[in-house]
Amino acid sequence: MVHTKAEILINQMIAPDHFKMVLRLKDFRGSVKPGQFFHIRAGSDYDPLLRRPLSIHRIGNSTDIIEILYKVVGKGTQLMSRRSKDTYLDVIGPLGNGFKIAKRQRNFIIVAGGMGVAPLLGLCDELAKFRKKNIAVILGAKTADYIVCEKEFRDLKATVLVATEDGSRGVKGLVTDVLADTIKRFDLRETGIKLGAKNTSELTIANYQPGATLYTCGCKAMLEQVAKICRRYNLEAQASLEERMGCGLGACMGCVVNTVSGYKRVCKDGPVFELGEIIF
């Protein structure tokens, strides 16, 4: 973890209000894991006052290059969106624990609600390095305009299922509807696993491995539904959580989430938690 300057190499709108920023970290030689985040100072005066925790979207070929995907929702992200190439941001990171990748697992389900996709593409980059694997990605958003990264996931040979609330793309409904439907076809007890939904191409999993690991990120309401589904099908799941943060270093206790073992800090104990551990 370092406190350093980061040069903005790219800051580009990729969908309405959605931006991709590529940063080069100054003098950074450490390692970066998918699921970790950077605590970024968007401006330089007192409004906004605090840093913004933004998860790592993708890691470059050298670890001093990182991508951030963000949506303009307030003053901080608005300031970030106006920053031009070749200027510098004050960043602290990488922070937090990152996703745990089960080395023996070969079946993965990624569930992304809206901007929840941000930390999951970098994760998929890692999963795609496995030789024999099956990755299903379920992307959800309000409308087709806000479905991002679909091509990038497909380029990683993942099967991508899309849900939009207005039905303008993919299945009309929520990601959790698609997930439930997918898992029903994803029989965990039998040796031949089939994965797919009615409206998408059906895929067969060639290399059988019992069960699957699910990775998810999105709003609390969505995560709660995903947790219920995972409990019902006894699926191992990890979720990246979001919370308002103070220090980002585990000191202020401002960003806690309620878990079966009490309040835990999203910045330090997370942001990735076992989904079953979270109390909604």
Binding site: Y46, L49, L50, E243, R244, M245, G246, C252, G254, C255
Partner: peptide
């Protein structure tokens, strides 16, 4: 401690 949310940023300030 108190249940979350525990922080809210205000203009040039922080409520905790």
């Amino acid at each position: 401690g108190n249940p979350p949310p525990r922080l809210w940023e205000t203009t040039a300030g922080l409520l905790n």
